[in-house]
């Protein structure tokens, strides 16, 4: 049975997007170049966008990791000149399974704080518009009237803010994210109790 687009968007928002940062960090640790990571991640979202329903997916996190892994494998196979060990290595990349770990739960609780931080970090003009629109709940038109600018300007600034926030949410940080372990023999996949 198909799901509505808003349902899928809400699911991606809650179950996929929060894990993108980890997927990027994971790909990066395996020596994948930054622009290739961008492509892999974008392709992964394309595949999700093509789904009629996501209700069969038990874990957005695992799904994102596995999809990224598949895309990477396909790309490498298509590239013809491939170090034979690269494929083998990627095939056995150990994806940490996605029982909701205590860390993830804790991270979830921090989300409001995170939204606050993301918004406060925006450049001033952008932030002003973002606060009025997203926090105070004013309409684009009222904001334009209040600030004496065109609605297009408000819209453009909103898009810019969204873009900056998306980057801040998903870009890699130098610290290793929780819930991800290096692949290899030492790894134990986490399961629930």
């Amino acid at each position: 049975m198909g799901q509505s687009r808003p349902e899928i968007i809400a699911w991606v928002s809650g179950h996929v997007l929060p894990h993108e940062k980890d997927v990027r960090a994971w790909l990066s640790r395996h020596g994948i170049a930054a622009d290739q990571i961008d492509d892999v991640v974008q392709e992964a979202y394309c595949r999700i966008a093509a789904l009629d329903s996501v209700s069969h997916i038990a874990s957005g996190r695992s799904y994102l990791f596995r999809t990224a892994q598949n895309i990477l494998l396909e790309q490498i196979r298509r590239a013809r000149v491939v170090r034979i060990d690269t494929v083998a290595e990627i095939e056995c990349l150990n994806i940490v399974d996605d029982e909701p770990s205590p860390e993830r739960i804790a991270a979830g609780r921090l989300e409001l704080k995170q939204v606050e931080k993301l918004i406060l970090a925006l450049p001033e003009k952008c932030r002003k518009i973002f606060v009025l629109r997203r926090i105070q709940g004013m309409s684009q038109r009222s904001i334009a009237a209040m600030l004496g600018v065109s609605e297009n300007t408000v819209e453009a600034q909103a898009a810019r803010g969204l873009r900056l926030i998306l980057t801040a949410m998903t870009e890699q940080t130098s610290t290793r994210p929780n819930g991800i372990r290096e692949f290899g023999a030492k790894v134990r996949i986490r399961h629930g109790n």
Partner: peptide
Amino acid sequence: SGALLRAQAALCFLQRGRALE
């Protein structure tokens, strides 16, 4: 299509911003 889904998901995430009022 993937990029749009991702951007809409981020916007959906930011809806919680209303709770910061």
